[in-house]
Computed example of a mutant assay.
Amino acid sequence: MAKNKETFARTVFIVIGLCFICSIFVSTAAVLLKPTQQENKLLDKQKYILEAANLIDSKSQVSKKEILATYEKFVEAKVINLKTGEEVAGVDGDTYDQQKVSRDPETSSKPEHDIASIKRVADNAVIYLVHDESGKLTSVILPVHGYGLWSTMYAFLAVEPDLNTVQNLVYYSQGETPGLGGEVENPKWKAKWHGKKLFDEQGNIAITVTKNPAVAETPYGVDALSGATLTSNGVQHTLTFWLGNEGFANFIKKARNGGLS
């Protein structure tokens, strides 16, 4: 009997010891790999920004070196205050973590009209200015996000310097149903956004994700995703929020009055 107790105690001791050793390995690996994970995450984001700006083709294989060189040459990340629309001096747009900041009550707020179900919005947001070889502004890229059917969907909205004509809407992170809401990443649907207008002549938000073919053919309409009404509504709500007064509206107004170059 005593021998059985001793064997059981020894087994428990060995199991606990192995668990402890494994936990040390896992923790150490997590710490050591964190810089690499963050670097890959940043690289992935830069790749999607370049795709939104038509600087790389999503179908082509592009090396890490090419992504970094192209981004550094043509893209400038700036942090702007959403209430004033003005640039925030002294903040590096490439390292500013807007999602993290939005979770801090000291640097964010709850939207009054949270149509996109984002819960909290950071006081400051990142925007990306894209220039050509001569330094001429060719694109303005606005990071946007909002809830779909199952997930918060993150995208880059690239527009012409007029801050009205859409170049691309590129979703880079979403958990919608494959073959339905997941079609936000389908190149055929993404192509429908090219050349569409965000605002009407009076400056009102006019872009509409619609099931009506007649509306979809207008400069302000885009076909809704087939069989994915709630995801399509999520795209609409995302744009309505971020183009509105609690989003980038003040920045857009200032930019149109000569605030960009």
Results as ranks from 00 to 15, higher is better:
P35Q: 11
Y48M: 05
A29S: 14
V75M: 07
V91I: 15
N54M: 13
K64W: 04
L33W: 03
K73R: 13
D92M: 03
A89E: 15
V75E: 01
L50D: 02
G85P: 08
K47R: 13
K100E: 10
A53G: 06
D92H: 01
K83W: 05
A89P: 01
I14N: 07
F13T: 05
F13I: 00
F13G: 00
E76M: 12
A29F: 09
G85Y: 13
V91Y: 07
V75D: 02
K64M: 10
E66L: 09
K83G: 03
L18C: 11
L33F: 10
K83E: 04
T11Y: 01
V31N: 01
A77Q: 09
K73Y: 10
A9K: 00
L50Y: 07
C19E: 12
A53M: 07
Y96F: 15
A69N: 11
I24P: 03
K73L: 08
L42P: 02
N40D: 10
D57N: 14
F74G: 01
S58D: 10
V79H: 04
A9V: 00
E72H: 06
D44I: 11
L55V: 04
Q46R: 11
V75S: 02
L43D: 11
S60C: 02
G93Y: 06
S60R: 13
V15F: 05
F8L: 01
Q38M: 15
D97H: 01
I16E: 06
K47E: 05
T70K: 09
A69T: 13
L42N: 11
T28M: 08
